[in-house]
Amino acid sequence: MIRTQLAAVLHKPSVRLKILLITLLFIPTLIEQLTMIVPYADSFGKEGQVTVAIMLLHVFNYLYFYVDVLLAGFILLIPDIVRDEYIDKQAIMLSASRKKAAGIALARIVSFSVLYVLWFLLLTVMISGVWLRNFSLAWPHFISVIQKQAAGWSGWYMQLVMLPENCMDYPVLVVLFLIVVRSTLGFIFLGMLAGLITLLTKKTKYGVGIVIFLLAVTLFLYYDFDGGFLLCYDASVPAEQARVMTDLIKATLVPFFTFRSLTDNFTYWIQYGIVCGLVLCIVTSAGIWLYYQKGDLDNADQDE
């Protein structure tokens, strides 16, 4: 059933156009990153070899990339992900029970989010591999050089390639897997939240609006709030103020998509992102599930 629904939505001309546009935006942005990271890595001398692994970790860990491409693209697709106006009523009735209908609605959001992440994962591997003429998934040495520099820095430390402290203690594929899981959970959460708000308000625009609002809050706290941007670089900022800033940022979308600084602890932040992502996915999916059991499913979208 879910395969049928997915196929129907993926055949939708507007969905194809949106995916094409996001892809067309993603490719030059990725190439731009490659053209910056390759000479940056070269500056580390013979240690500086960029690999596909580092590009994957960079794409799935760089807030600008998320905001400008991946999150923007996801927001465009939210109306198609949270509900399919063409077959919803029939799908609900044919599900035979509200529980099954809820399951299909949740599965649609989860599978779209997974497909979305996989598509950009595949694109990154292909384009980076071809560009670098190297499909290696090994840890590049220059990352350990950056991390040694970061370790000697008392404040928050940022570099072009942002991989946090102690991530190299783990095999690259484990780190990559955990980062992709974290991102996928982040997208699933956003999709489910948009879905829940759409169900409650019967307006898709509010579902989209809540995601844009969360993104705006994230960016505000990350870059603007009380000189937060400067805090990232300024080691003289009092520890208490820095801690408050970190706590505020942890309450935004940031831990679901990126790390804060090279001096962040990988184990701690990835755990935080994944556990928070899981909890929020469970809470929002429970909300959708409950709505399907108790609410009206007449689904008239009152946007029109």
Binding site: T4, A8, K12, I87, Q90, M93
Partner: peptide
């Protein structure tokens, strides 16, 4: 079986394909 308000279809599929999508449920 029902018709309620504006019937919902997949506009870019043919009639047969629309019914096939619905038929896939049961």
């Amino acid at each position: 079986g029902f018709i309620i308000e504006r019937p919902e279809y997949i506009p870019y599929y043919s009639a047969v394909k629309n019914l096939a999508v619905i038929a896939a449920y049961h």
